[in-house]
Design a protein around this nucleic acid. Structure first.
Lengths: 310, 310
DNA sequence: ATTCATTACTGTCCTAGACAAAATACGTGT
DNA sequence: ACACGTATTTTGTCTAGGACAGTAATGAAT
């Protein structure tokens, strides 16, 4: 039996643990050395076997770290204490109950009603228009689904189905807009270790109706290809998306390298959950902490931009 | 200024090299030990500094490995020899000249004409209809683009752009078909280590017009979630897609595990380039070596299927 | 309260050995 | 000639612990 087939068993090897928690192998080993947690059992070859429980706790820790906590302070806490902390944080400025709409969609997902889900998304999109749909409906919906996922209420395949259907709906809607050679031209992509491309589609959905010409490369473009693509397409703006778990260091490194390699006339935007964790200022990089900020940033860009002479 | 930011455009640290080549840090270090390539210089802390040239050669090697070559055989070759190999491989068993249409699209890609590309794809799709478009146009086009990629004629970002635009066009076309609760219901996805999802979309494009209800989970669903999803959605068929480079053993293991865990009434299909390498017979798994075979397999399924009593 | 220097914390890199998994080569039996 | 099972080779991933750079927290001095 090989590694891939282990999936249905109750333990994960270090690669799987890395994938599931977003913590690098080096970090997992280092924590074990320093904090004695996690302390995975070993298989017959001495390789680490992480239990589902440990992975759950690691996820809880990671989530708190993503909002600024430090591992040394929280790694010794129990699962209950971690959850209490997360709740205390999450409750801040959030409605107590899940609003009706989000609850409805969650129910459709949990009952595996594909047709109902497609219908719900299509109806909402039609009724609200593309931009409002993204701003008013998708943003809270994504949050609700993320929360449910964290609480373990959603299965992986249910979350996959949601992403897939939402992508289909958004793409269709975006494609109904006439493809024009608008200004600015915006290049959209993610760095190679970021595979979530939904953020790109959401930005596209907000900005295409504003007359932006979006050139999306999909996820995972090597840094140097982003540079080449920006030059080749004469992009005015390069926008990268980062999900919550993206390693902060890797992101800031990538962004400042890119910033240095592109002419100053090309703006660099960084968006996605991860950007809320950024503390130090990145000169010449515009942070887009939420979707609404992208429209503001666009307005600001247009206010300052002057067509090149000639 | 931090470490990665110091790269004055001439060298990359090991993280950056991993990002740019797709080869893990472990592999980069191991190759250095075993094959004495790459042999990066070191900075004042003894950390590896990869040159642009080395990264270029590593990329060429990675491309060849992705089509089945083994590192030991090619790592010692010069850049010229690597290119020659790529050329030889791409040309094998192909017409001498690239047909006009494929050449046109390649030209659009190389000139970075987004609008032209969108227009070309949309026009072809309209003229030929969705199914013919996939069968007659996309199949040879993908091959031509794969060849060009092998020869190093296409940049990463150009290939990304093609995939993205094709996906957009296909999704829009698929979504124009009325969403019906058709028979069979087919669950589409890939295993966790397979991230290419284009194949799923192509199958969907061929089968939705045939009245199949396609439920796509996108790429990378854990094996056990595929099982759960198949049961939850009462799928008649589970179809997995594998790209050319997928490890044979991992695929056959995954498929037979899945086959074992699903009731016999649910058929399992395996498609994609990789399936052509399968030698041993997988009982209860239908191999779909090319897109056309999916339509035949569907016909065969329908001929044998009888609705459950009651 | 703000600024600066020091200390503590945390992640990533390093070497080098071991061995698991994949691919290939080499049988053997049909 | 072809399928199938078993060595052998090749290749990738894991292990351990040491080193140290960059960041955050702390304390001291304005």
């Amino acid at each position: 039996m090989n590694k891939a087939a282990e999936t249905h068993e109750l333990v994960l090897n270090i690669s799987a643990a890395e994938r599931e928690t977003g913590l690098s192998k080096d970090v997992l080993r280092m924590w074990e050395r320093r904090y004695a947690f996690p302390k995975p059992s070993r298989d017959e070859n001495g390789e680490r076997q992480y239990s589902i429980g440990d992975v759950g706790k690691l996820r809880a820790i990671k989530r708190l770290m993503d909002v600024g906590m430090r591992p040394g302070k929280i790694i010794a806490l129990s699962n209950e204490e971690l959850n209490a902390m997360a709740l205390a944080r999450a409750g801040k400025g959030r409605d107590i109950a899940t609003p009706a709409l989000e609850g409805d969609v969650l129910m459709l997902l949990k009952t595996h009603d594909v047709t109902g889900l497609q219908h719900a998304l299509a109806t909402l999109l039609m009724r609200e228009g593309l931009q409002n749909f993204v701003r008013e409906t998708i943003t809270p919906l994504n949050r609700a689904i993320g929360d449910a996922w964290m609480r373990g209420e959603l299965q992986v395949f249910e979350e996959h189905l949601y992403t897939e259907q939402l992508q289909a709906a958004l793409r269709t809607a975006i494609n109904t807009f006439p493809r024009q050679a608008g200004i600015p031209r915006m290049l959209l992509t993610t760095l190679p270790s970021e595979q979530h491309g939904l953020g790109l589609l959401l930005v596209e959905a907000l900005l295409v109706p504003e007359g932006v010409q979006c050139i999306s490369l999909g996820p995972q473009t090597p840094l140097d290809d982003i540079r080449r693509a920006a030059l080749a397409h004469k992009a005015h703006i390069v926008a990268l998306s980062f999900s919550a778990a993206f390693p902060l260091r890797q992101a800031t490194d990538g962004l400042s390298t890119l910033r240095r390699q592109l002419p100053a006339s090309i703006h660099v935007w960084a968006g996605g959950e991860m950007t809320r964790r950024v503390r130090k200022t990145l000169p010449g990089v515009v942070l887009i902490p939420d979707l609404g900020a992208s429209v503001n940033a666009l307005r600001s860009w247009r206010a300052h931009w002057t067509p090149p002479a000639g």
